[in-house]
Write a protein that binds this DNA or RNA. Structure first.
Length: 213
DNA sequence: TATACGATCACCT
DNA sequence: GGTGATCGTATAC
């Protein structure tokens, strides 16, 4: 039996742009995880763009064994382990050889909510997938999926979702980023306001967002 | 080899 | 508002 997809993943060309453009374009798209033959999915509602040598906050500010994948072909998953207990899901951007990635920070569940609850025991629905570590736990995304091709992988892909009006998007500084002022304040976090559970501008209320009209 | 710390989360006051 | 958990990675020795 040939492998086939329940729906068509977004094409590689979608990711072959600068990270900021991809981060905006990913809002409203559908993350699809197939786990033991069951479909889990959700709409992406919060992203962050990361660059290369121009971005001190990026893992690809320098090329290391871990960040090498960000220098490779676009449309590939970059999953890393952080704080000794969490995973974060990124999508590689830019043409092959040029570093970049987009961090998926938040998702609104659309399919398989029962399984998401099982993966996040004791957590209220509202908080199942409203953070980068949380959504990886809910969708069972670990380092085992690092490097998979999101345009052609049967267990993890991103497919067309809903059209998002630019007036419903907000840009803010990235969360948890330290360093110089330029790095900290660069508005490379994007939130789909109408859908995000943690409503923009910032879950901590420290920064203000700017609507992208 | 050793050490400091992080693109987080949950739970505390 | 603050902090501990917990370990892979990067970087310094």
């Amino acid at each position: 039996m040939p492998t086939h997809f329940a729906e068509h993943p977004l094409p590689r060309a979608f990711y072959e742009r600068d990270s900021e453009a991809v981060a905006r374009a990913l809002l409203g798209q559908r993350l699809v995880r197939v786990l033991n033959g069951r479909r889990l999915s959700g709409l992406i509602c919060e992203t962050e763009a990361y660059g290369g040598a121009n971005d001190r906050a990026s893992h690809a500010y320098r090329r290391t064994p871990r960040s090498a994948i960000m220098f490779g072909p676009p449309g590939v998953a970059y999953v890393y382990f952080i704080y000794g207990m969490h995973h974060c899901l990124n999508v590689v951007t830019e043409r092959d050889g040029q570093p970049g990635a987009v961090l998926i920070r938040s998702i609104t569940p659309t399919e398989g909510i029962e399984r998401l609850r099982e993966n996040r025991p004791g957590v209220a629905d509202r908080y199942l997938t409203d953070g980068p570590g949380k959504l990886c736990q809910a969708f069972a995304i670990t380092a085992a999926l690092n490097g998979v091709d999101l345009t052609g992988n049967a267990e993890l892909c991103i497919a067309a979702g809903e059209q998002v009006d630019a007036r419903e998007m907000v840009a803010t500084p990235r969360i948890g980023v330290h360093g110089d002022a330029e790095t900290r304040t660069r508005p490379w976090r994007f939130v789909w306001q109408q859908v995000a559970h943690s409503v923009a501008p910032d879950p901590r209320g420290k920064t203000s967002g700017v609507a992208l009209v």
